[in-house]
Each structure stands twice: as structure tokens, then as C-alpha cells.
Amino acid sequence: MNTILLTPNLGKVNGFAALRPRVVSSGKQLEKSVAAAGRETLWISADAGMTVELLKLVRWPARSLGSALLLHKLSVETLGALQECFSPIAFAPPGGFLSTPELVAALRAKNRADLVLCGTVDKASRTVRLFCGNLDSLVVPFSAFSPSGDGVAPDFDRFSVADYGHTVRLGKYEAAVDAILYEFDADYRRRKAKERLRSERGLGASLRRLRKERRLRREDFAPLAAKTIARIEQGKIKSVRPRTLTAIAKVLGVKPDELEDY
């Protein structure tokens, strides 16, 4: 993905260096970038003025200029025009984002769709809108953040995102992002179901099922290391040596060539 960083403040560039962005800090550079941009372009704007300048360069009706991550305040009127050019768009008020190093790490992560970059709280509709690392968003009602047993309730005036996008903080209340996604993001549930299916097939899954059935711990396969058993169960070891397979089968009380059938 081509990344373009809009900022008149070159001091901000270093924080985003890992994304190897093309830095745009003048009108001329902006004009060239708009002309070259396409669906695969990610625009990160750290400056409201430059975002507006960008919109002035667009020829309407707009073609897709890619996706956008807006790190500055945004008016509803500007958002409408932006939505004509960019999809998806992620935005939040100051304080609603991960810190810059965490934001950059989350944008580069393989699992970025499972991490939250930023969010906004709308007290009128009693909802929180969260933007994930792939810039897709989801809306979560206040009621989803139920107080835990120790009675700590979420404080919606103190929203932040932490732990590289794994945590949504509402004051002292910290919600696990994967639990939120599981409840409110159908794509996330489908991805997890696929992962589960993948891990339930093959030698690793059979070994795990049999081991649990026999009420054995991974440590019970000594002299094989517990970590080796874990790696086989997780499908990390694709080709298991016959000697290892025989040792495992012996502990489980099955024939080595039948191990995978369980």
C-alpha cells in the first residue's frame, strides 16, 4: 500500500517513518499526490488545513483516492466531501487515537483488522464508534460495556485506546477489543470460526483431543518436551518424525498410524 502523509510539520514525519510514507507538506506536492493516488493509497493527514486543500484539488464527481486516516478535528460538512473521495475513512478527536508508535505498529500488523486504532463517543446516541487497523469501523452501544464484578463502571468521558489496539479504556474500565469484535463484528467472528476449523483438523487436533480425553498434560509425554507437544498440537510442526509419533502414540495407547483418525 502507498502511504501519503500530509503534514506541514516535518517534525511529525519521524514517528511515521516505519510506514515509509511519501511526505506532502506543500500545495505543489499535494497536487502531484492527488493525481497519482488510487484505491491502494492510504492517506494520513495530521493537519486539517491540508485535508481541506486536498479537497479543493479534487475534480468532481470524485474518483476514489484510496483510504484515509485523519488525525485532526473534522467538521461534519468536510466529512461529507471526504466520503466521496475516500473509503474507508477513520477519524477521531484528539486523544481518541493510539499513541503514534502504537498507531504505526498497529497499521503494519498482520492482525491489524483485529486491533482498534481510534474511536469516538456519541453521548446522544449512547454509542461508541471504533475504527480498526484496516480502517473499517463498528458501532458499539454503551450497554455493551457492562461493569465487572468489582463494580467499576465505564466512564464515557474518558475514552482512549491502549495496548497497541487490544484495549479500549473508559476511565478505569478496560474492555478487551477481541471480546468487543466477537460480539459486534460478523467478519471477525467468521475469521475466528475459520481459524478454529483449521486448528480442529489434522494430527495436532487429534493429539489434543486424545490427550484431553486421557486427562494428560503436555508434560506427561517426557522425554518429549511439553513445548514440542504444544507445537505439534498447534500444527507448527508439519512433519513429525516416526520415532516421535511412536512415542506419543505409546503414551496415548493408540497405534501410531491411527493417531490422526481420532
Binding site: 465487572s148 495496548d163 474492555a175 471480546a179 468487543i180
Partner: peptide, 12 residues
């Protein structure tokens, strides 16, 4: 490294 018990995980 961090080790946490987070909120909103009652179904897990």
C-alpha cells in the same frame, strides 16, 4: 510484556 485480566470477557 504485559499480563492482564481485562473486562468484557465474561462469555469466555
Amino acid at each position: 510484556w504485559k499480563v492482564k485480566i481485562q473486562e468484557k470477557e465474561s462469555r469466555e
